[in-house]
Design a protein around this nucleic acid. Structure first.
Lengths: 177, 177
DNA sequence: AATTTATGTCAGCTTTGTTGACATAAATTG
DNA sequence: CAATTTATGTCAACAAAGCTGACATAAATT
C-alpha cells in the first residue's frame, strides 16, 4: 500500500503555485550572507552569534536590565546567562545595580565592548550601503518600510524604542557625554 | 590597572557613529519573525529548520544531487545526513540513483514532501505579500534588487538557477505535467 | 589495475537554544 | 512586620544542528 505516495515528483515548485518563492529565497540568501561578516570576526574572539546580539543591544540600549534584554532577544535567562557571564568576565559588559530597584542589574558596555560592537556592525553597515548604492536615493525608505512591515505588529514598538530609528530620533540619550 | 577600561559607557551607539543601525536591526527583526511562521508548523511534525531547508530546495530543484544540495546549504554532509535520513525514512523525500552517474543520488520530493514544502512556504509568502501591500506596486523590484545586492556576488549565480526567479523565468521545467 | 569521486556512516565535540528546580535579595502587599 | 512576589543567578540535563576526523563502498576515471 501507499505506493503512489512514495513516487518522486519531478517538476519544481514555482511561482505558479501561488507562492512568492523569489523573495523567500532572496531573503534567505541575503540574511545568510549578512550574518557571515560578523561571524568571521567573532571567531577570532572565540565568540558566537549569541554574544554578538548581547553586545549589540547592550550598546544600543545602555542601562537596559536583564529582563529587558531577555524580552528583546526572546531567549531564556539560562541561555543568556552563559554568554553574558563570559562577556562580563572578559570585560566587554558591566553590570550596575539599579538605583530605583536594587534587584535589577543594568547592563552597560565598556570601551572594549563598544569597540567590539562597532567592529561587528561595520561590515554589515558596509554591505547595506553597497546594496543601497545600486538603488535610487529615495528607495531607502521603501526598504525600511518593507522590513518594518515584515515584523510582527505587536513587536514593532520594540523597534521604535531604539535610538536613531526612523521615528524617535534621539531623545535625551545622545548628549555626547 | 585597567581601571578605566572597566568603566560603564552610558551613551547609546547611534547612527551618528557612522553605522546604519536602523537597517541592521530591521533586518534582524524581520528575519526573526519571517522564520517564526514555519518554525511553528515544523514543531507539529517534530522537524526543525534544517528539515525545512532541505524540503524547500528539494522541491525547488527536484533531482538535485546530494553534493549540489550541500553546496546550496553550505553545511557538511554529516549535518545533512541526519535530517535527510529522517525525511527519506518518513517518506517526504526519495532518492533515485543517477542515470548517467550511478554514484549520484538524485533527490525528489514525494507528494507528502511537496505538501509540506507548500505548507511551510505559505505563511512566509503571505507575510511578504502583506508587507508589499503597504508599498507602491512597483516597489517590489526595489526589494528584489536590494536583497539580491545583499548576497555575496560570487553566490548570485546560485539564485539565478532557481526556477521562476527574476531572470530565467521558467525554462522547460514548468510543464504542468 | 590504480586512483579518484560521490555518498554513507560512526564517533565525538561545540554552540545555543530548551525545561525544571532551587537560592537570594529586594520590593511589595496584606 | 510577616508573607509574598519579583529580578536575578545557578545547577543539571537535554535537544537541535552545526562541526571535524576516520573509514567504507561502489562507480567512474585514469
Amino acid at each position: 500500500m501507499n505506493d503512489e505516495l512514495e513516487q518522486a515528483i519531478r517538476t519544481p515548485l514555482t511561482a505558479n503555485d501561488g507562492i512568492d518563492f523569489s523573495l523567500i529565497e532572496l531573503f534567505f540568501f541575503a540574511y545568510r550572507d549578512f550574518t557571515s561578516d560578523p561571524d568571521q570576526i567573532l571567531e577570532t574572539y572565540g565568540f558566537g552569534r549569541a554574544h554578538h546580539r548581547v553586545v549589540h543591544f547592550v550598546n544600543r540600549m545602555p542601562g537596559l536590565t536583564v529582563a529587558e534584554l531577555l524580552d528583546v532577544l526572546k531567549i531564556t535567562k539560562q541561555s543568556l546567562a552563559r554568554v553574558l557571564k563570559q562577556l562580563i568576565d572578559m570585560g566587554y559588559v558591566v553590570q550596575i545595580q539599579g538605583l530605583r530597584d536594587r534587584r535589577q542589574r543594568e547592563l552597560y558596555p565598556t570601551s572594549k565592548g563598544r569597540e567590539l560592537a562597532l567592529a561587528l556592525a561595520a561590515p554589515q553597515s558596509r554591505r547595506i550601503a553597497g546594496a543601497l548604492d545600486d538603488l535610487e536615493a529615495d528607495d531607502r525608505a521603501v526598504i525600511e518600510a518593507f522590513l518594518k512591515s515584515m515584523v510582527d505588529p505587536h513587536l514593532r514598538p520594540q523597534i521604535d524604542k531604539l535610538p536613531g530609528s526612523v521615528s524617535g530620533q534621539d531623545g535625551n540619550a545622545t548628549r555626547t557625554n
